[in-house]
Structure formats: structure tokens, C-alpha cells
Computed example of a mutant assay.
Amino acid sequence: MAENNAAPRHILVIGMGAGDPDHLTLAAVKAMRRAEVFFVLGKGREKESLTRLRRDILDEHLTGPYRVVEAEDPWRDRTQDDGARYTSAVHDWRHRRADICERLIIEELAPGECGAFLVWGDPSLYDSTLAILEDIRDRGTVDFGHTVVPGISSVSALAARHRVTLNRVGRPIHITPGRRLAQGFPEDDGDIVVMLDGHETFTQLTGRGLWIHWGAYIGTPDEILVSGPLDEVAGRISRLRAEARERHGWIMDTYLLRQSTEETDRPAAGADGAPG
């Protein structure tokens, strides 16, 4: 049963951008200054740089007292890539994440206090934080309200770095994880933004006359950009991904696919596989 208290806890879910500390909006900074406790789920030693970046952002923008409470993110079964087994694995992982976040909110956030989760990119796009908070609220063990502050997603940052629009005149945009793209290319579905593609599905799409705008670690000092006809650059992107994963222990990348046209397919300066 939820505790009966006249001053419920409040949670801020703050989009912190794709990696560049300057991606924080004024609304995000104002929200951060309201929070007394920041919750961080660590991704293990190989992704310590992500936790450090969060702390750097807090140090840069906050002057008042605050606490950072860290917990280890639970293991997720990433071997299940198809249909119901994938959905089941994700729900199981989210449920275990909710167990951890529920404990942190109860034990580390006093009634009447304001806590925050800093979310990469935008909380509404391929992020689990909002679903986890709804799970916790449905359990009825702790009473809290929550507010969402949008952020700059890797999708919008990718388009900005390549100096292109995501859509073309009168055409839709299709945003999909790489896992779904591998199940079938959405023909005549406008321009396609692909996220979470650990299997390099773009390598299976050569010979279709596609152009790719690809970026990894967007907005960070390690940023890599490549733009060009997919048939010509797919192999180079694969090599860059392998080298970057070996160097950092992890990779986050996003790409835009579209039918090639002379008018729109001009790569941005610096989009040659080197850091931008």
C-alpha cells in the first residue's frame, strides 16, 4: 500500500541530449536545479565514460547541494532477437530495473523531495525510464508524481551534424530499430532512421540505390561521421564500428537511409569517417 503523506515525492525525467553537454536545453538546466537527488543506473566498467559525462554535466550546471545515487543496471538477455522472445526478454529486464528504481526512490528520496533521472537523448524515443516509472506507480508501494523534460535526440543530432533534413517534401519518416529492419525493408516508406542496430543491418541493403548518413558517439569528442552511397561506404562503416567498439568497449550509432538523388545527397564537411 502506498504511504500516506501530504508531501509526495516528485521525479523529473530529463532529456540530456545525445552527448554534447551543450545539448542541454534551458528547461533541462532549470529542472536539474530543482532536483535534490540524481539516480544513475551504471552500465558496468566498459561504459564508465557515460556515468562520468553525467557527473560532468551536473558539475557544470549545478551550484547548490545535490546527491548522486548509483546502482548497477541489471543484466539483459540480448541473444533473443525475434518476436515474442525478444519482447519477453525486454519486459523481464524492465521489471528488474523497476525493482531497483523502486528501492532507490523509497530509500533515497524522502517524501517531499525531488529526484531526477538524466536520460540520453529524449525520454520519449527508445528509452525505458517512463515505462519503468509507470510500472512502479502501478505497484502502489510509493507515491510520487513525475514530469518529463524533452531533450535533443541522437536522431535530430545526426541530421544536424550531416546538415540534412530528416524528411523530404511530402514524404514520411520511418524510425525503426535495426532488429525490425532486418525482418524486412519497408519499401516506399519514405526516409528511414535506424537506431539500435547491433547487427549492422545496413550491410544487407546494398544494391538498392540507397544513400546513408551514419554517425556514432554523436555530440561527443569521439564522434564519427560517414555519408555516401551505401554500396560504397558500407564496408568502411563496418570497419569503423569494429575499431571503435574495440577502442571504447561499446558503441552507440544511428543512421538515415534514403533513395539517392543528386540534389539532396551531399555529404557534410568532415563526414568522411573521421571525427567531426
Score class of each variant (00 low, 15 high):
243 E>N: 10
66 Y>T: 09
61 H>Q: 11
82 D>T: 13
123 P>L: 04
125 L>I: 15
45 R>H: 05
137 R>D: 14
253 D>F: 01
211 W>H: 11
121 G>T: 02
248 H>N: 08
61 H>F: 14
30 K>D: 15
119 V>I: 08
148 V>C: 04
253 D>A: 13
137 R>N: 10
272 D>V: 00
72 E>Q: 15
58 L>Y: 00
32 M>H: 03
89 A>Q: 08
3 E>S: 09
6 A>P: 09
133 L>I: 05
15 G>R: 07
61 H>K: 11
267 P>T: 03
87 T>D: 15
215 G>W: 00
76 R>T: 05
205 L>A: 06
212 I>M: 12
89 A>E: 07
166 L>V: 05
93 W>Y: 14
199 H>T: 11
90 V>I: 14
20 D>I: 00
107 E>A: 13
79 T>W: 08
150 P>C: 09
182 A>L: 06
121 G>M: 04
90 V>K: 14
118 L>F: 04
178 G>W: 04
175 I>T: 10
256 L>Y: 01
33 R>T: 10
272 D>W: 03
224 I>R: 13
211 W>A: 14
42 G>I: 01
147 T>F: 10
247 R>A: 13
128 S>H: 03
142 V>M: 03
46 E>Y: 09
128 S>L: 07
99 D>I: 08
53 L>V: 09
44 G>E: 09
172 P>H: 09
221 P>A: 04
88 S>W: 02
18 A>D: 03
106 I>A: 14
216 A>F: 00
52 R>M: 07
60 E>M: 13
178 G>R: 01
164 V>K: 00
34 R>I: 01
229 P>M: 07
209 G>Q: 08
6 A>V: 13
110 A>I: 00
101 C>F: 12
70 E>M: 11
187 E>K: 07
78 R>H: 06
177 P>S: 04
6 A>F: 13
194 V>R: 05
156 S>P: 05
263 E>D: 15
94 R>M: 10
268 A>T: 08
199 H>P: 02
22 D>V: 09
206 T>R: 11
245 R>V: 03
146 H>A: 02
20 D>G: 01
189 D>N: 14
11 I>M: 12
117 F>M: 05
276 G>C: 09
19 G>W: 05
136 I>R: 07
234 A>G: 06
213 H>S: 13
242 A>P: 03
185 F>W: 13
54 R>L: 11
225 L>W: 00
238 S>I: 01
77 D>K: 02
96 R>K: 15
172 P>Y: 10
207 G>M: 11
147 T>W: 02
126 Y>G: 07
137 R>L: 13
91 H>I: 10
140 G>V: 09
8 P>M: 06
69 V>T: 11
